[in-house]
Design a protein around this nucleic acid. Structure first.
Length: 215
DNA sequence: GACCAGGCACATC
DNA sequence: GATGTGCATGGT
């Protein structure tokens, strides 16, 4: 069976098992972008605490984050960990959104995806996973998000990517699945759900809906 | 108390 | 170009 068929089959199995995940939980696209930075190497509970703090202070706006003092920003995002660097990242990103798009994400969204992706990758603190999360979950662009879970799970099911290279993994999904933001959105969310619900709680793979499957 | 969590930048070899 | 290390909180 070719990759595309198997990848779709796995998607359908996961969707049936777990149902739609309704990602990304946020009130606005800018909140998704902030959350993508805050959740870097941090569990979502801690990232969401940081976001709640920002919300209470009405800071989920590019202009607010750009001008607030570093120490105040840090005190708000502290629960997400790595707060010194994340504060700098958020300020740099917000500054870019203001300078390049006048703080208007609709303008940002009009930029061709490949161009925008490279532009965002040039911002300090925004690596491939963070940028792709922003493109997919904040701007609804059809890019597939690769994370540690994706590599671990699909690696375990027989996928071999040279050097565990990000573009290599991304191509596996983007070239073998319909280029559909809705599909990519749900698929990545389901992979995270599987990793947390099954791989972590049942390392012996008992009850895993993908048990025995290989690509 | 060890280990992990929806990474990334930077130094060093 | 590959590999190692610092960043830091809160849950299990």
């Amino acid at each position: 069976m070719i990759y595309g068929k198997k990848l779709l089959k796995i998607y359908k199995i996961l969707l049936k098992e777990f149902g739609p995940q309704y990602w990304w939980p946020a009130d606005s696209p800018f909140e998704v972008m902030i959350g993508a930075v805050l959740t870097q190497n941090t569990n979502w509970l801690n990232a969401s605490r940081a976001i709640d703090n920002l919300k209470r202070k009405d800071l989920i706006r590019p202009h607010k984050i750009a001008v607030i003092s570093k120490s105040k920003l840090i005190s708000a995002i502290r629960p997400s960990g790595f707060y010194n660097q994340k504060a700098a990242y958020l300020k740099g990103f917000s500054r870019h959104v203001i300078d390049r798009y006048s703080g208007d994400l609709r303008k940002m969204s009009r930029v061709k995806t490949g161009i925008l992706r490279n532009e965002l990758l040039a911002i300090n603190g925004l690596g491939p996973e963070t940028v792709d999360s922003i493109l997919l979950y904040a701007l609804d662009k059809p890019v597939f998000v690769i994370d540690a879970y994706t590599r671990r799970i699909f690696g375990r099911h027989g996928v071999k990517i040279k050097d565990s290279d990000y573009p290599g993994w991304q191509n596996l999904f983007e070239l073998h699945l319909p280029r559909d933001a809705k599909l990519f959105n749900e698929y990545h969310a389901l992979i995270v759900k599987l990793a947390k619900e099954r791989c972590r709680k049942k390392p012996d793979c008992q009850g895993c809906p993908l048990k025995g499957m290989s690509l």
